[in-house]
Write a protein that binds this DNA or RNA. Structure first.
Lengths: 221, 221
DNA sequence: TGAATAGTGTCTGTAAGACAATATTCC
DNA sequence: GGAATATTGTCTTACAGACACTATTCA
């Protein structure tokens, strides 16, 4: 009997100077051997305790990345998305600060625009589009973007992250009021200077309670 | 080689007098034969064009229901959730007005509390919990609850639906302002009287554009 | 006419955005 | 001191909720 192919794929998202990026790797095997695609692979029944485990394993094995934020996105399925036959891909998306991706660059990972990705095999463009939509949607009313800002960051930096994701300028006073209200940041001793001759900004880090769990806002922004 | 089991399960949600309900069917086969569970079944590679098709087919075949709203919820997976072995269940949730479920009652469907479901096989309780959480979350800021109100409904009826889902009373004036702002309802000619001696309410129906697509609110409620 | 609920007008408090003043750093 | 950006204070505007009034039906 013809069996359904069960895989996981991960849209690894990060924020670069020129916008939101998705990480791609050249495929090591057929189909689409040596074509750039989302990191993905078969579920291993012996070693994976669930699909999330499989996604983590794939990221670690193929890119050397242990993502600080990983969430199930959606499952893509059908007879035509994979030339090998009827397939199911449980898709995840991960958020990684730009710094962390540098290591992965050495392992062959390249970054492509997440908003206008190049041609990709399978239905990976649909997966990327869904990941970007999910990220943008959740950015409206949650702490999700913090995971793109890195381990520590200043409020002006974090505001720029939100602004890039939401694609609109935010009111500085309102933004700070919201961040205070969310009560999810811890100030880090010492401060940080930016480009130079001006007042340095306070450095913050996400409170431990919000590393794995999102903080939601009642009214958005 | 041991193959992964690929199934779909559907949490069929409806609103009764005493709260949110989930539809259960007695299983026709092993495992858990004749135990009440969510409607579900194998993906059929020959006939299903994707997992959503499988979910529709399962609902139609086993309950005779063509749900007005059906959305992918999440995928549950692991070696232990199904005694047959490592399995993947692509879970969906469907919203059905109470009226529509009456037909299904004749086909053996029973309703259980969705908030406090009885013991269920597999990880069906987790699926129900996820479906309820998703519904409640989306009710805050979208037109989703309309699909529980039936084909046509009055604004007071719709407000009660929202109130039940959100588990809090809503301001009448604000609620109506929001509904007007969302601009998703068409008034139906004629009116409707409720329990009797008082002014009848205008009957509305969802505009066609919002039958399959949700309308989202900027600020919630 | 009275009871009951539908639908609307209006006031008030709260929260978001605009604007601007103050703070702190490097040169 | 001057430039530049961080941070905070305050005013204005928009919107959500409270309250109350009008509308419409049935008995």
């Amino acid at each position: 009997m013809n069996q359904i192919i069960c895989t996981v794929d991960v849209a690894l998202l990060t924020l670069a100077e020129d916008g939101l990026k998705v990480g791609l790797l050249r495929r090591e095997r057929e189909p689409f051997k040596s074509v750039a695609a989302l990191p993905g692979g078969y579920i291993h029944q012996e070693s994976d305790n669930d699909a999330r485990d499989a996604a983590r394993r794939v990221l670690m094995d193929k890119a050397g990345i242990d993502p600080p934020y990983l969430e199930q996105l959606a499952t893509f399925s059908g007879p035509a998305r994979d030339p090998r036959g009827w397939s199911v891909s449980i898709a995840y998306y991960a958020l990684v600060p730009a710094q962390l991706l540098e290591q992965a660059g050495e392992r062959g990972m390249t970054l492509a625009s997440a908003d206008h990705p190049p041609q990709l095999p399978f239905d990976h463009r649909a997966i990327v589009a869904a990941a970007v939509a999910r990220l943008r949607s959740k950015s409206q009313y949650s702490s999700l973007p913090c995971h793109l800002a890195g381990e520590t960051f200043t409020l002006p930096q974090l505001q720029k992250v939100y602004e890039t994701l939401m694609n609109e300028p935010l009111n500085k006073v309102s933004f700070r009021r919201k961040m205070t209200e969310m009560d999810m940041l811890d100030p880090v001793e010492g401060r940080l200077e930016s480009a130079g001759a001006h007042r340095p900004a306070q450095v913050y880090r996400l409170k431990a309670a919000f590393r794995d769990e999102l903080q939601l806002l009642e009214r958005g922004l």
